[in-house]
Design a protein around this nucleic acid. Sequence first.
DNA 1: CTGAAAGCGCTTACAG
DNA 2: CTGAAAGCGCTTACAG
Lengths: 363, 363
Amino acid sequence: MPRKPSNPGRGIHRETPATSYDVALLAGVSQSAVSRCYTPGASISSKTRAKIVKAADALGYRPNAIARGLITRRSNMVAVIITNLTNMAYPEVLFQLNQRLVERGMHLLLFTLSSERNVAQVLEEVWQYRVDGVVAAAHFSDEQTEACHARNLPVVFYNRRSSDPHAGSVCCDHERGVRDLVERLVQAGHHRFAIVGGPPESEVSQLRTRGAIDAIERKRGLVYDIYEGDYRYSGGREAAARIVSARRRADAVICANDALAFGCIDGLRRDHGISVPGDVSVVGFDGVSAVEWASYDLTTVVQPVERMVEAAVDMLLERIENPGLPAEARVFAGAFREGSSARLGTGAGDSRRRAGTATELPG
Amino acid sequence: MPRKPSNPGRGIHRETPATSYDVALLAGVSQSAVSRCYTPGASISSKTRAKIVKAADALGYRPNAIARGLITRRSNMVAVIITNLTNMAYPEVLFQLNQRLVERGMHLLLFTLSSERNVAQVLEEVWQYRVDGVVAAAHFSDEQTEACHARNLPVVFYNRRSSDPHAGSVCCDHERGVRDLVERLVQAGHHRFAIVGGPPESEVSQLRTRGAIDAIERKRGLVYDIYEGDYRYSGGREAAARIVSARRRADAVICANDALAFGCIDGLRRDHGISVPGDVSVVGFDGVSAVEWASYDLTTVVQPVERMVEAAVDMLLERIENPGLPAEARVFAGAFREGSSARLGTGAGDSRRRAGTATELPG
DNA sequence: CTGAAAGCGCTTACAG
DNA sequence: CTGAAAGCGCTTACAG
């Protein structure tokens, strides 16, 4: 027995949106026909289609994506889990992710973590919403990754490596980027390094810090000290104070991200009257937009965000279509950006570099 | 006749998540009982609940939020429509919005606009997803606002005023904030103003620019010129060049947002050797985190993001609960922040202010 | 090409 | 407190 239309009282300010049944009734066709009209590739005559479109317009009908998702088991939603948006590099990533996902007919359900702690809680919600996939810029335990896999929920990590064989990942090659920085600094005669790390629990920070240490230890005659930061401007500025009062003064500071580097530069220059890069070189990592600001003109490694995001979305959607695909890890090299915050002596630097910058190398 | 469980083959790697029916079967209770177990306040004995929880754990069951949304007509999702995340002020807003929404049991479906153009397209998708409400930091036409109202979809605008009586709004008082800036600058003896606007289509920029003009015209003996910007650092820097080459040199620059102000400061100082605030004062608007960076230490108006977001979420959820509530507009005053980018002579400024800043007032 | 029917996984009166 | 049943708004075989 056909159901009754859900909206008997029909007016501009109806209490509930029109359904396919309402449209069918008005168009004088079956509800299935209405459904086919909105299913790409379904067989429907242009005559019927015209009647339906007319009725649908009159009622302001839009297919209910929630109901569709229930029957097709595809919500067309992707959960994006991001540690915190205050990291200056994330807004760009999020924006690009959304653009790419929308292009592919998906939508972005946002989950942010106040601390890396409550991943478990977030995952509960992600599961309840039956998203089709997850892009995670956050750390999962192996059990959590495995639980997603058991639920047939594809996960792609962004800038995190997972030891679990079931999750894909897209990463910037942090080690290589930082090694490149170290080599250029050494080449230019630096040999006393300060490494300003991010939050100790950050995997990315660990990789960058570890990469710097390895690159430094590989050479002879170099020394380094490690300072703890927090990925923020204020942390960099505080680190500058500690660097200045250290018994051996660094001649190059490697910061785990750009925000730390900005703080470090300001701290050195303004709080301690030290010339950057005259006395000390400072480099960062990420390539946020502020690296181009003239007050910093930061020498850094720029993550290829566009390509990384594209890769992450491609990888995820492939695995949504085809759950059998094996996991994959894609690693992208960052691009070296020569600013004027480090004395590299390649002569390829910013033409606005101030006099006194290109001083003679020590030793 | 009871339906068959959808997952006959039960294993860790099942092909489909467990349903309430599966749990009921395993627990030896009815499907309704399972549903009640996950409905706060439903009547269920602790004995039955225990059996269900045990079965649910074994199967990794989570209620399907999509199916629930279909029957309850509440998706517990709020669409957030944001013009573009590259505006430095938005990431913080988005992050706060998500925090607040999650606290209240809602989830955030993100929609970004590449240009203000495709609001129509975004709204189509918003409607299909049956979100419970919309927070929009984007401009809607009256028809669009009205269409949401006709669908019983509450909308709260963030920093946009709507002429439509059906939409709520939360705004910072841009006019008042900028008037405050102008008055303080005039008080300190400035009288030749440069106003650097944002993108002409931005409502916020219009309000701020208009507010500056009004405040200036209200006084005697003041002059001003208007420069077009784009809300970005580069626009501010370019505006600086035009300001410098203008026939009458401004002694105070009012920028429509902080990013423009940063660019303007760098342009004046580094491209043209002009002292800020010695020769020219520069002020911004927003209060992004970089205003505290020592290289800028920007004098600006700080939007009370936390309170504004809280108000927006409260207002929206109230109207989701009670669709009959009348529209409401809440306006928040910004907080003046005295940095060292403007010569205000109040003596209350940054203690790190460099010598030469507090020069004698002209005239 | 078209319609009747079953079913996606839930919630919620309704009886008992 | 509990279960059988209807129904949310769709999609999709299945006949015709």
